[in-house]
Design a protein around this nucleic acid. Structure first.
Lengths: 232, 232, 232, 232
DNA sequence: ATGTAAGCGAGACGGTACGTCAAGTCTTGTT
DNA sequence: AACAAGACTTGACGTACCGTCTCGCTTACAT
């Protein structure tokens, strides 16, 4: 019976309060809503949580780490609904994601920790592990489901499949984030529909162009619209 | 012959030093490279620029505004090359943009000011005006050129054209930003090619789906791949 | 040929404005009243006087010098009234002096420049010349008048006379200043009477002790102390 | 039954460092000597004391309060020696007081805080409590001793006694301060003798004038003035 | 049951940067 | 030249947080 994690060999002394952890993360989100990232201070969080500053520092190295943890759980709310068709599922998840990014605690925190992560490798990993990577399964799950439905063909090459999933993830997450936070325009259902159409058309067309015959890679590059294209 | 701006009717006193402005912006970028956003201080910038702190505050309201101005000019370097085909042009501009985002002064500053802008309307406008909006012309220019080449059909509806340009801009910029800063993976030419293919396929397919017959918007929603799709 | 002062050999260029000088000193006193010494700024004085800061610095080396000049003229208001007897005259001048020290521009400025003068020899001289020395004549004048009236004996030794005048001046000015500014108690006519009695009794007694053959203490002493014998 | 001070019911948190307090006050005096009042800065004091600026501000509201406290203890050095006769005692204490005022930390600080106190009631009280009032006992003690020796008659009226003590205090302190700091002349033993004679002659004569039945001025007057009869 | 080792709230500590203000200088154009 | 205007450098101001430390007190496990 393996008692515990190897890094924690039966710690002695008073154990850390689990309530404190919860209170701190809750207080952090609250403070994010009220003050935003840049005005949030460790002291304020401690006060809101009814906890001493030292207790925060005992658990987190600093503001960045604390905020990542506080926000990460919000991203776990996302889930892929089964609405019967891939486009519908994608649209729904896009809207979910946009709604998440509209929440004040998320919008102010996400870009800020990403900004910090550009100079802090450990933070970058932490973000990747607790926020980004956790959502990638949505893409995989969506593809799998679409393949079961026959909306997408099976992908024989596992490596290609993984690369494609990453690309799609960056496109979806990037577009929604950019629309929401940088362009600062709302992601409404109209935008979600047009974006989904663009994405899935691209997926389909590209696959079609590559599969049948199939033409060599050289020609595989679409001229953009062999047939007259238009606005999405 | 327009004599002068009405707001500035021959200001009296010693005029502001134009050299100082340039030195400050340069020092700001330098400091961004050395220290990153969060460690950058007004005092450090002032010192590097050989200028007093008060001179900074006389011109900019704070760190955010200063950094936006310092970084904005870098985005003006972007330009759409004419490589003969739309895919080539897109790929090139994607790589250019990625290269810009890899620069330390850009990567640390961009996300940070965007994060701040979520709580500061004026800052949001400033970013939109001096950074985002300035790059949108690349999309318009690319479409125009593609239409001249016959790669894309004319878009009769101006409103639709504008909406589509916005969408494409968010997709391109978002995907590149997300790949670079969030996923923290390099944007190499392979990724750029695959992304471009996805985007332009989507554009073409969507346009094709909408145009000919043409089915109403209801049906215009692609099932993802009427024809068997696959990985991009 | 009364051309000019040697230091000013027919200056060329625009002559200094005499109005400016008056306006500046007036503005300085005004500012002293409103803000007190420590909050008074050169910029504020310049603004009140409708003058540029450079104009101030062209005439005075700094705040200290300016304030000394601005306040010095107030001390010239003091004069020794002729009320018929030495005690009455002294009492009157004590009350005059106290009233001057109660004025906000005087009380805040005097101690401050004295404090500064402890580290600045030039300032000390300036204060001595424009404020202190100018008032010493009141003592000399009072003694002379008292001698004419027969209230005080003639002092044959000029050196002793001078030393005594200095002592009396320090005692009078010191006591009034200390009572007003340090003890922060009012100098009312009761205090003035008691102080005057103490001072003149001392003078008389000391003189009597020194001049055995002379008249007794009774006559040499001021009438105020003689019969009614108010308590000190 | 004397359990505790009500204001300090077992303070929690880290206690204030007593060393810091001492170091700060010492550093303040040092800085006063080196820089004088107007050049003294909180930052400099903090540096000299090896203490953070915030530690200063946690204990004192500002420069004024700090300096009053730093200088106040110096005044506690004053004490009335027992040299056998009132004139000798007074002379000695006058010289002591003058020596104290000659010290650079005292001379620059005293006038400055008095100047500030003209606009700050709390500061005035603080000065009165920690500096002025503390020295008044010297006058009371001197009178008491002189009465025991028979140099001064008993004063039956307590109110008159108090008023007279205040007057004498203002006269002594004022004269010495004025001589030292305003006239900027040295208080040597000659001046001290002449001043003492003036003061005590005045006291004696005034008392004599008030107490007809009592001994004549000759005896009631201190020996110092009696025979040698030095000029005032 | 009793150590003992850690956790805990409180708050002082040495620091760094903030954004402001005043001092005194310098550079315009105007008088 | 002196002037009004105002931008400039310098340096102190007093505040806010930082992350660490020192207290005296709990709390739980291991004897």
């Amino acid at each position: 019976m393996p008692s515990r994690t190897p890094t924690e060999p039966t710690r002695s002394g008073r154990p850390r309060s689990a309530e404190a952890d919860a209170a701190i993360l809750e207080a952090t989100r609250e403070s994010l809503v009220d003050l935003g990232w840049s005005k949030l201070t460790m002291g304020d969080v401690a006060t809101r949580a009814g906890v001493a500053k030292t207790t925060l520092y005992r658990r987190w190295a600093g503001k960045n780490e604390l905020v990542v943890d506080a926000v990460a759980v919000l991203f776990d709310e996302l889930e892929l609904p089964d609405l019967g068709s891939l486009p519908a599922d994608v649209e729904a998840v896009v809207l979910q994601f946009a709604a998440l990014l509209e929440r004040p605690e998320t919008k102010t925190a996400l870009m800020a920790v990403v900004a910090e992560s550009t100079r802090d490798e450990a933070l970058r990993d932490r973000i990747r592990d607790s926020i980004v990577a956790r959502q990638k399964h949505l893409v995989l799950q969506g593809r799998e489901r679409a393949q079961l439905r026959g909306e997408l063909p099976a992908e024989p090459d596992a490596l290609v499949a993984a690369r494609t999933a990453d690309l799609i993830f960056d496109v979806i997450a990037g577009a929604v984030v950019h629309r929401t936070l940088v362009s600062a325009e709302p992601v409404d259902s109209d935008w979600a529909r047009r974006f989904t159409m663009l994405l899935l058309s691209g997926l389909g067309a590209a696959a079609a162009g590559r599969q049948p015959g199939a033409r060599g890679p050289g020609e595989s590059r679409p001229t953009g619209a062999q047939k007259p294209g238009g606005s999405v």
